[in-house]
């Protein structure tokens, strides 16, 4: 699967200002097709803003973002999503009043070509229903499929969040701190799950847990004060003196 074609995602001189505050100050980065690319950096470095720019939640002040060959900077999130980029949220972001099954099914509607259809029943889309059941099985929530999402435990909601992100056929996945708030066992289990999910797709991930980063990622970028100070393999990043000083050193 891992072909050495052009980058799946390519970012050129990206800037984002909020009023006078420059949060993203010129990021250029290529994310290779099929790679598992982690973004690390201290708090307030702009990691979440960076993801929000890529996924279309904010429009960049300047700069370009290319998904494959398509220029997506400034596009609305739903258009970016239709082009094959899906993201998860740091703070769980699900449909609380709906069942687990319906949450997942909603995430499969557009990829399943249900569109804005109002002349057919949603349950008539058998492929979407079957795929939803398979996915719920995969994220380990089969026993809770009928439960209201708002009633799930925190870890279950995180699983649902990721399930909704990987639903469909997005080629590029962005995970914003997928293991936030999990305990050690859960993190371990979850890493294995993420590794499985990433097969055949391009993944970008913001993560604080260095064990997760170094066990999953094949590329790592370090974001400090709105700029990327280094990109390389986990080994190279570990050795990089600038990174050690700016980030890893500070934590050790």
């Amino acid at each position: 699967m891992m072909t050495a074609s052009g980058p799946a995602l390519s970012i050129r001189d990206l800037h984002k200002d909020f009023g006078a505050a420059q949060i993203i100050r010129g990021i250029s980065l290529d994310v290779r097709e099929g790679s598992f690319h982690a973004v690390i950096g201290p708090n307030g470095a702009g990691k979440s803003t960076f993801f929000n720019l890529i996924s279309g939640r904010f429009a960049p002040t300047s700069g370009k973002i290319l998904l494959g060959d398509t220029q997506i900077s400034g596009m609305r999130p739903y258009r970016i999503n239709r082009l094959g980029l899906s993201r998860s949220f740091q703070i769980t972001n699900i449909f609380n009043e709906m069942s687990v099954f319906e949450n997942i099914r909603c995430a499969l509607m557009w990829p399943g070509r249900a569109g804005y259809c109002f002349w057919r029943r949603a349950s008539g889309y058998r492929r979407i229903g079957a795929e939803a059941e398979r996915l719920i099985e995969e994220i380990g929530l089969s026993a809770r499929a009928g439960e209201k999402a708002g009633n799930l435990s925190y870890a279950e909601q995180r699983a649902l969040e990721v399930g909704m992100t990987i639903a469909g056929d997005a080629r590029v996945l962005l995970f914003d701190e997928p293991t936030a708030g999990m305990n050690h066992n859960e993190v371990e289990q979850f890493s294995g799950f993420l590794r499985k999910v990433a097969v055949g797709r391009t993944v970008m991930m913001v993560e604080h847990d260095m064990n997760v980063v170094f066990s999953l990622a094949d590329r790592v970028s370090v974001l400090v004060y709105g700029q990327i100070i280094a990109t390389g393999t986990p080994e190279e990043i570990r050795q990089d003196p600038a990174v050690r000083e700016a980030y890893l050193g500070a934590e050790a």
């Binding site: 739903y78 999503n81 239709r82 949220f89 909603c106 557009w110 909704m164």
Partner: peptide
């Protein structure tokens, strides 16, 4: 329930 999330699901 959550209009913002819907935007990230293609709608």
């Amino acid at each position: 329930d959550n209009p913002q999330r819907v935007e990230f699901l293609g709608y």
